[in-house]
């Protein structure tokens, strides 16, 4: 879809810039006011770190942050491993079974989050499992594992089917084949699946809110907060910095890889 247009060139550039400003203005405002010495959101009094100081001394926030990270790490590990194995299994299935499973897999992704949340809550209530870390982690696995499958599965389909058979034919066991042949070939998508899981779990609100009981994560903490203070801005700034670092790093690695390949060719 490319048409050379000379007319309206300026308008289109301005439009793109306006949308980008819309996307980043709130984020910028979060960051700027995190360094304000005053509570005010209009006047930037002077540059200070008092809200950061307050943030690190706020036990509740720190617990919420640690909980969020803990749950995200566990859910990511479990989802990535089980999801990858399942994707391998699904890729070897007959079409009918495969399509059925993939459709089922989509369910948690297309369902409104709140419905997934309610369904899990009802499950835990019916089974009489007390809500806490366990239920939260189970819930996070439930909604992240479909993303692992939709990320990993297409790459497996792309792989030459005979490669697996060749490995088996040469004497490797099925597990050896997974470890030595399949995993090295889908390494990159496994990494992206894991990072997707982590982000989804890290940012989740609705499902955690319904399944975590009294356990707090960052989102639940923010939602139930009575009064918003610029400590929130400080927290945002730290999270945003983390995201920027990850994005830049992953992009440089990607570029480096692309360049390496170009050099070799």
């Amino acid at each position: 879809m490319k048409i050379k247009k000379t007319r309206k060139f300026n308008f289109s550039v301005i439009y793109v810039i306006l949308v980008l400003i819309f996307c980043y203005a709130p984020i910028l405002s979060l960051v700027i006011f995190s360094f304000n010495s005053d509570r005010s959101l209009t006047n930037f009094q002077s540059f200070s770190f008092i809200w950061y100081d307050k943030l690190f001394n706020d036990g509740q926030v720190m617990t919420a942050v640690l909980n969020t990270i803990f749950v995200a790490v566990v859910a990511t590990l479990v989802s990535t491993v089980l999801g990858t194995l399942a994707a391998i299994a699904i890729s070897r299935m007959k079409k009918v079974m495969r399509d059925g499973l993939l459709n089922l897999n989509n369910l948690p992704m297309i369902n409104p989050e709140i419905v997934t949340a309610v369904s899990l809550l009802l499950l835990f209530l019916s089974l009489g499992i007390g809500q806490g870390y366990l239920t939260m982690i189970l819930a996070h696995i439930t909604f992240t594992i479909p993303y692992v499958i939709v990320t990993v599965y297409p790459k497996l389909r792309e792989m030459d089917e005979n490669m697996v058979e060749a490995s088996l034919d040469l004497g490797a066991t099925p597990l050896g084949t997974i470890w030595h042949i399949i995993i090295p070939n889908i390494k990159t998508v496994i990494i992206s699946a894991a990072s997707l899981c982590f982000t989804l779990s890290f940012d989740d609100f609705v499902i955690s809110y319904f399944t975590a009981g009294t356990v707090n994560n960052i989102s639940i903490y923010l939602y139930t907060l009575r009064r918003l203070e610029p400590t929130i801005n400080a927290l945002s700034t730290i999270i945003i910095t983390g995201i920027i670092i990850v994005l830049v790093l992953s992009n440089t690695i990607k570029h480096k890889k692309v360049n390496d390949n170009e050099d070799e060719d």
Binding site: P26, L30, L41, T42, S219, I232, S236
Partner: peptide
Amino acid sequence: LLVSAPMWVNMLLRTIAWKQILSTAGP
């Protein structure tokens, strides 16, 4: 990438940012 990158920031934080911007005492 630029349009989708803000999705990485917690949705509550982004909403809170708008609350700050739109409040009577906001920018």
